[in-house]
Design a binder for these strands. Sequence first.
DNA 1: TTAGGGTTAGAA
DNA 2: TTCTAACCCTAA
Length: 226
Amino acid sequence: MEQPEISFCSPEMEQTGLFWLPVEEAEQGLDGLLGDLQLSLASSTACGLQMENYRARDDDAVLILKLLEEPRDEADLDEWLSGGLHESPLQDTVSHHQMECRRSGRRGTRKRRTSPWDTLFFGGIPLRRAGKYITRKNNSHWTAKEVKLLVHGVSKFGVGRWSKLKKKYFKTSVRTAVNLKDKWRNLLRAYQKNIQKYTLLDLEPPLVEQIRKLAVKHPYPKRRHS
DNA sequence: TTAGGGTTAGAA
DNA sequence: TTCTAACCCTAA
């Protein structure tokens, strides 16, 4: 199959990391994450795929077009967008971005309880003691990918549906529904009103903007206790 | 299951 | 010492 040609709307868009691609009308309505890319399809007649990413590459766009060429049902596409059905071949642009930035006091591994997941995800030390793994409940610091997935989940389900969000987007993750709730609370504290003196997680501006919009759309926390 | 206060580790 | 992020605890 002939490789699709990538085109940009304008030099300005290229500079700000916005990629626009011509797509078929049938694919309109797509919205979500593919790897590290935040995608949205224009719903107007001016058909285009917008990729918001500060370090997106042309070959990322080619990959997405290949995805769009394959007919999928909505659930399948949702899985794709959440990363459930593919290992993202895309560049981890957020991590890359963070590597290039000064790390303002990012903390090291906390001395928390550990689990066998550590050896899988962190190449950690053996964690068996007396024939049993020490129970740990999560993975220390959240990655940018996890945060994006959480934001995507909140955009789909709203806040307060953490167990549903867990089943849909963090099914195989060690993150619990409570972890998702806590992380969303921390994100709001960090980005909603700029009340924090500093934040330890450098998120891409479009993602921060999305968090702020979601905070307005889905107010949280909801006061339960009087 | 969720909300929200409390605790803790570690960096500013 | 202060602050953030991760995690814990428990009432509803």
